[in-house]
Every structure is written in C-alpha cells, then in structure tokens.
C-alpha cells in the first residue's frame, strides 16, 4: 500500500497519490484501487483518508452551512441569491415575512433589494434542485455594515482553525466580529477602520500561507506588531 507523495507536497490533477486500501477524500478520486488527485493542491493524509487541499475550488452548498450572498433578483415569491456556487440559491418570501404572506400585498424589495448582501443558512440542496436558504435564525439576515473578504472556499477550515482557534485569536486580537461564510466570503465588522484593516491583513496572510504550520502564532505576532506600530505613531 504505497503512498507516492509526502504530506503538503504539491500535486496536479491526474497525479497518482496512493495505491491500495485507502479512502478517497476531497479533490481526489479512486479508480481500480488507485487514488488520484483531481485538483491542483497540497496532499494530506489522515489515517486511511487521502485528500488534497485545493489551491482553488468553488463552493458546493451543504445543508447547514452559513453563507454570505448577494441578492440578484426579486421574484413574486422570494429572492434569487448569488452564493458563488454553480447554482443560484433561492430564499422564499414565506421564510422571511411573518404570518400569512400574500405576494400581491407584500413589498419584497423593501425587505431585501437587488444588491443587498445577506447572511443565510443553507437548508436544502441535492443537485436536482437549486439550493434553498433561510434567514430565520439569530445572526442571519441583511448585512448593514462591515467589510467583506473573499477567499477560496477550501481555505475556510484553515481560517477557522482547530476548534475555532484561528478565528478566536483574530477576534480577540483585533476586537472585530467575524462572520465566516462557508462559500468563501467573510464579513468583518470592528469598532474602527484600523481594527478592520488588521483583521483583513490577518486573513490575507492565512490565505497565502495556509499550508504552513505554526501559522496561528505567526499571525498573532503580526497583528501585535502592526498594532504597536500604529499606536506608537
């Protein structure tokens, strides 16, 4: 049962990763007991599971995910939301409007208009139908302030860190609120533009160096250094 690459080595689509009794994980595929990479990325082994952390990928909705999207259209029965997935997502008006919703009387654009950004949860998606969203939970709904940062969706787990260690650290060090959309969009809202700038810098650093170890410590250090430099000015 040989493995052909070391952990964190860069592979291209079609590269043979492992042979034998292994399980194929993200961005890989299995054929005739052989596991190949299907995207450009870094190999990782996790027991019997072989997967590739892709350098670039697109978002595939999973029920339960929190996503950040943009309203692209209002229809008589709801909204069409762009969540950067292959299919546009639907948000039904009956999900938002209390009690009996009547398409002829309710003014939907006054709730969410084209161009608005919203935080929502995916409730259903099965490839035969477009993804369904909901905003009926605390913390969801229209975004009124803050900054958006976009990263490749495959890097979201790294940004969250083990049990949320990385986001937790950024929140603590910069004093910003971070809302992470699984689709690669991250909302930052802080007390000052300076705090937000620090958080954006930290996210960009994580994105660029996501494959390295000891990243949390280095990002902490960077934020502290930056903050000191600003304070001393």
């Amino acid at each position: 049962m040989p493995l052909f690459y070391e952990k964190k080595q860069l592979v291209a689509p079609g590269d043979l990763l492992a042979e034998g009794d292994y399980v194929s994980g993200d961005s890989t595929y299995k054929e005739n007991e052989k596991i190949y990479a299907s995207r450009l990325g870094l190999v990782d082994y996790d027991g019997k599971r072989v997967h590739v952390v892709a350098l670039k990928a697109f978002y595939i909705p999973v029920p339960g995910d929190t996503v950040i999207g943009k309203v692209v259209e209002t229809t008589p029965s709801g909204w069409v939301i762009d969540i950067k997935a292959p299919h546009p997502a639907r948000l039904r008006a009956s999900d938002v409007v209390e009690r009996s919703f009547k398409p002829e009387t309710t003014d939907l654009p006054s709730i969410f208009d084209v161009g608005d950004l919203i935080i929502a949860n995916v409730i259903a998606y099965d490839r035969t139908r477009d993804p369904q969203l909901t905003v009926r939970e605390p913390g969801l709904g229209k975004i009124v302030r803050g900054q958006l940062v976009e990263v490749t969706p495959t890097k979201i787990p790294r940004i969250i860190g083990r049990q949320g260690s990385m986001v937790g650290m950024i929140k603590r060090e910069t004093g910003c609120q971070l809302t992470i959309g699984q689709n690669g969009l991250i909302l930052i809202s802080g007390r000052s533009p300076e705090a937000e700038r620090l958080a954006v810098m930290a996210l960009r650093k994580i994105e660029k160096e996501s494959h390295t170890s000891g990243l949390t410590d280095r990002v902490t250090e960077m934020i502290r250094k930056e903050r000191k430099a600003v304070e001393s000015n």
């Binding site: 689509p13 079609g14 961005s27 190949y36 995207r39 450009l40 892709a54 350098l55 670039k56 990928a57």
Partner: peptide, 11 residues
C-alpha cells in the same frame, strides 16, 4: 480548467 479549480481525472 485546472486553474479554475474544476475537478479533472487528468490533464
């Protein structure tokens, strides 16, 4: 295609 992150069997 590979750059776009589209999963491929091979180049």
């Amino acid at each position: 295609l590979a750059d776009a992150g589209i999963p491929m069997r091979d180049l």
